[in-house]
């Protein structure tokens, strides 16, 4: 079950993994995610499905080795298995021809962004993309995003690739151009999505964000993933993962994401020691 077909290291922290999961490959649509458990006693973590191949019966995941589970995952290779994999979860992205869409990916967020951008392109949208990363080695899916975009802008914090700075700067520029963008999709760290939403709010451009919160079951049972959206409390796993970015309470979400930070830092340290990852 859930045999790994390949596990490719994209950068020093990022991996692209193809897993045999024929049922999920058949059902999944852009925007959906899976929950996996590397081993029987492992924690359950959500990861977005980047791509799928129905014929091969495979799905593709991209992840950053930042916690214990993702480190364990990074150390698996072809022929190994993932103990548990369930999905596709969450609601698929609503795809239609909006017109001009700006797609903004921050860090590993470009992984979930890509299938959505690809589907939007397929529906006739003109895609303008911005992908940002801390440094050159962490830029992912550059070639893939370029293929579907009218224009691709890359930003890095240190200027080692593309423009030096944050994604919000080119986003501001693109937002002011005519024709006015019909939609912005921003996916990445919560702080980056928050900053993007602040920019697009100024220009009154509808903005979708895809949230990646703490989850256990992914079917609405635990409520661990809840976020404040406008005046309502929503569950990311069943009501999302996409929401109107202008309504999301990012400050609360950022704090909730750090609820187990101490525990995770300890595990992270232990993982680096054990697995020999820098």
């Amino acid at each position: 079950m859930n045999k790994i077909i390949e596990n490719l290291q994209l950068s020093d922290e990022t991996f692209r993994m193809k897993v045999h999961a024929p049922l999920i490959a058949e059902e999944r649509k852009a925007g959906q995610f899976i929950i996996l458990q590397v081993h029987e006693k492992g924690e359950r973590i959500p990861l977005t499905i980047v791509d799928s191949d129905e014929k091969e019966g495979s799905i593709t995941l991209i992840f950053q080795a930042i916690g214990k589970t993702t480190h364990l995952l990074a150390n698996l290779g072809e022929g190994d298995s993932i103990a548990h994999l369930v999905g596709p979860l969450g609601n698929p992205t609503h795809i239609e021809n909006f017109g001009k869409v700006i797609c903004v990916g921050g860090g590993i967020g470009t992984a979930p962004l890509y299938p959505i951008a690809k589907s939007l392109k397929g529906a006739g949208n003109k895609i303008y993309s911005i992908i940002g990363a801390r440094r050159k080695g962490l830029v992912i899916l550059e070639k893939e995003m370029k293929e579907i975009s009218e224009e691709l802008i890359i930003t890095t914090d240190d200027g080692s690739c593309g423009l030096k700075g944050l994604v919000t700067e080119p986003l501001r520029e693109l937002s002011q151009k005519t024709p006015k963008p019909d939609l912005v999709i921003a996916i990445g760290p919560a702080i980056m999505m928050k900053a993007c939403c602040e920019v697009t709010k100024e220009f009154n451009i509808p903005t979708l964000v895809s949230l990646n919160t703490i989850m256990i079951d992914g079917t609405g049972m635990c409520g661990g993933c809840r976020v404040n959206v406008g005046s309502e409390v929503k569950f990311v796993c069943v009501d999302g993962p996409e929401f109107d970015g202008h309504k999301v309470d990012f400050d609360n979400m950022i704090k909730r994401l750090a609820a187990y930070k101490k525990f995770e830092d300890d595990e992270h340290h232990r993982c680096h020691m054990k697995l020999g990852i820098k």
């Binding site: 256990i216 049972m221 635990c222 409520g223 661990g224 409390v233 309470d249 609360n252 909730r256």
Partner: peptide
């Protein structure tokens, strides 16, 4: 939604299932 507020489902699932 403050950090430290949980549903019983989440708390019990972490303990029992996980």
């Amino acid at each position: 939604s403050l950090v430290g507020v949980f549903s019983s489902n989440e708390y019990l699932t972490r303990i029992n299932l996980m």
